[in-house]
Design a protein around this nucleic acid. Structure first.
Lengths: 183, 183
DNA sequence: TGTAATTCTTGATTTGAATCAAGGTTTGGC
DNA sequence: GCCAAACCTTGATTCAAATCAAGAATTACA
């Protein structure tokens, strides 16, 4: 599953893939409600979702702010914590029973040093992620809830099947009631 | 100016810096109101601001949505367009007379291939940018305008000196009237 | 499969930011 | 240094989304 995805990356030779796959050493199965990481912990892993669904959110005194979702074939981590190795402000919680593969930061850093193609790969992934966040930044600034919804429907229609609407409402910075009324 | 900044990057040897600096070939001086890039153009450069101030925004039928600022010692570009080499949705406009240095995408890509340290440098810059955007994503989701303002005041107090408040208001997704009332 | 917990929907009401408007201030350019 | 343009402030009013509330539908899992 991860294998077939990596084999589709034009950058990688079969040998690159063979060097990479064994680094995804840990296999996690989490139940609905379980946490991959909680606020205060330092993120040590990058996760690949094989099955299930998860939410990434910032807990605040008032309410949780949902900032992302993960589902099969996507990567997830508490990125700021992983990069800076400081305590995470974010939590990652399973919305249903989920299976994940994990690679440690150490192993990931090492293979980037050993094989430049992985640094290039990661650079490209970061560029894609940044482009996505820039689009998201615009989405969040739209004053009209209907427009915000439309843009998410266009960009990620599948998440409406995978994730309870109340989390999507938070992600779209509106109440569940408002989302329900405009859907 | 750019030189002294690059010399502070621990990653770089003096030789790296010597190889990099000459690639910043073009020098632009733009007047207040001038555009570095307009919607529809394909971004070819990464810019370094030596003096002045600029805004990065998405023009929409209703209103401009301000998504960023640049000021001395910062980099700016229409990132999605630069990376994907597709027409830019964004505009970059000078808010006052500004002086910039520019490196072409081609030269930047080449030096990353030639000298791995530049790939590493760029990866780190991308990581920083992504962490910044993740913080910004949370800022934008805060329902209370006062909290949004507070977070910007904490993170970038200097821009209040550099940029007209009406653009800051847009950046904070509120009207100039609201910003004026809460400042 | 049955039952409890969770999530979703719909209606009534409140509230706070947007809008509209006008006067005052600062800034840019000649 | 002067003038026009741009920007900011403040007040009155409007309006759309949040809140409050309750019942319906769906989902989890024993």
């Amino acid at each position: 599953m991860l294998a077939s995805l990596l084999n589709q990356v034009p950058l990688f030779t079969p040998d690159d893939v063979d060097a990479f796959l064994p680094l995804w050493k840990k296999r996690y199965t989490v139940n609905r409600g379980d946490f991959l990481i909680r606020e205060g912990q330092v993120e040590q892993h990058l996760y690949f979702v094989e099955s299930g669904a998860l939410r990434l959110y910032l807990p605040t005194p008032e309410e949780d702010i949902c900032v992302g979702f993960a589902y099969p074939n996507t990567l997830i981590t508490s990125f700021p914590s992983l990069v800076t190795q400081t305590p995470s402000l974010y939590c990652i919680q399973a919305l249903r029973r989920s299976e994940l593969l994990a690679i440690s930061k150490t192993d990931f850093d090492l293979i980037q040093e050993k094989r430049p193609v992985f640094m290039k790969f990661w650079r490209m992934e970061l560029e894609k992620a940044l482009v996505g966040k820039i689009e998201r930044e615009v989405d969040l600034q739209l004053p009209d809830p209907v427009q915000r919804l439309e843009r998410l429907l266009r960009r990620s229609p599948h998440i409406f099947q995978l994730v309870p609407k109340k989390y999507i409402a938070s992600y779209l910075r509106m109440t569940p009631e408002t989302l329900s009324r405009i859907m």
